[in-house]
Amino acid sequence: MKGRRFLVFGALFGFALSRARVTDYDTIAGMFRLTDLHVVGVIGSAIATAAVGFWLLRRSGNRTATGQPIELRAQPWHMGAVWGGLTFGGGWALSGACPGTALAQVGEGKLAALFTVGGILGGTYLYGRVRSRLGTPAAPARAAAAAS
């Protein structure tokens, strides 16, 4: 299957999530209690670093190291970002995890996260079911490939 090298990027990302302690329930709880700004600092400085990196990449024509075009498009505005964002936030508060950290947690040996992973799969499926019945794809269908 194509894209095997992304296993390495994923492993690096999972390692960094774990070392950043965002896979730690108490750290996430501290953020939601507004008593620990560690995670806010992590996300903020990660965005700043990525923004500088993307800017450098754009300046050099948005090409990979081997000259291939980089698929990077900002998602256009849609109201689902607000409603979906709020829904997601509620689930993040209940489980203490997001789609990435839940998988890293499983690797760390926090096996309760398997319930979270199962729930995320179920929620993804249910959303797809409802959307399919409504007959319309999700608003960001075209752009979701870029930013999801």
């Binding site: 996300i43 998602q75 849609h78 409603w83 997601f88 936030g89 203490g96 995890a97 729930g119 999700a138």
Partner: peptide
């Protein structure tokens, strides 16, 4: 709690078109 939270996370991520990695970092 973890499963129920996961359901909301999964549905919300598809509705929003991304999660903290794709939206909050890359987006």
């Amino acid at each position: 709690l973890l499963f129920g939270g996961g359901l909301l996370v999964g549905a919300g991520a598809r509705w929003a078109g991304g999660c903290p990695s794709g939206h909050s970092l890359v987006g």
